[in-house]
Amino acid sequence: MSQVSMMPQRGGAARAPALPPGPGVGFKPQHFADIIAAPQPLAFFEVHAENYMGEGGRPHAQLARLRRDHALSIHGVGLALGGSGPLDGAHLARLARLCERYEPESFSEHLAWAGHGGMFLNDLLPLPYTPERLATVAAHVEQAQEALKRPILIENPATYLTFAESSIPEGEFLAELTRRTGCGLLLDVNNLFVSAINHGLDPDRMLAALPLDRVGEIHLAGHVPAASPGTAPLLVDAHGSHVSAPVWALFARVLRRTGPVATLIEWDNDVPDWPTLRAEAERAGAHLLQARKAA
C-alpha cells in the first residue's frame, strides 16, 4: 500500500489513486512493439510529461495503448517547482490537461528548477535550502496540486554543488515540504547515493532524514564516476547504464524502512533493448517481493 492515498488532503488536492507497489520502467518509444507483443511482468510505466504535449500523432497513440493495460506515472521535468520565480502558468495548464487525458495513478516532479524569466535550460538545477526558498517551493507545490487536482510526489535531486547560503539539510527541507503541502516523496535512491558521495555525506544518514512515511514511488538508475585522479569523489547521474551495486544495496535498506513501493528503472541514455531493461525491472521486482514477504 503506497502512502499517497493515505495522505491528508491539503490545498484542495483531491484523493488520487496510487501506483501499485511493483516494478516499472520509463517508457521508450523504441520498445513499444516489444511491450505490446506480450503481457509484461511490470506494474506500471512512466513517461516524461513534456514528451506528450502535442495534440495527437504517434506519441499519444502509443501512450493511450499503454494506458489501456497498465498503471501510469506521469513525471514532469519542466515545471521548475524549485525556482524562485513564479510557475509557468501555461505549462501548468498543459500538465493539467495531460492528467485529465490519461488520469495517471501518479504525477511527480523535481525539487529543482530549469531556467529563469521564461528561459528553459532542460537541466535539473540545484537550489539553496533556505527558509525563504522552502516557503516559495511549498507555495509552488500547493499551486501545482490545485491545478492538477491531486497530491503530487516530489523527487529528491542528484546534486553536484551546494550553496553557501543553505541552512537546512536536504532531508529536512523535503520533510518540511511534505508536511506543509501534503505532497509525497519520490525517493530516487540513485540520486540520494550520488548526492551523498558528491557532498562527502553518508547515504544512510541522508536517508534517515527523509520523510520515508511519504514515499509514493522509488526511482533507480545508473550513474558514472567523473572524478579526476587526486580530486574529490564525483558521480554523475547519467541514467545510461545498469543500476550500480551500492545503489541496489541501498535500495534493499530503503525497502526495509518503507515496505514495498512502486519502483522505476530510469534508463534514458544509451537505452538498452527491451529484454535488458525488463530484466533490470524484474531485479527490482525481486527485491519488492522480498520486502512484501518481510512485511
Binding site: 504535449m53 519542466g78 515545471l79 521548475a80 505549462h91 530549469a114 528561459m119 528553459f120 535550460l121
Partner: peptide, 9 residues
C-alpha cells in the same frame, strides 16, 4: 536563443 518553453518539440 535558448528554449522559452519546457516543450522541446
Amino acid at each position: 536563443a535558448p528554449p522559452t518553453s519546457p516543450v522541446l518539440a
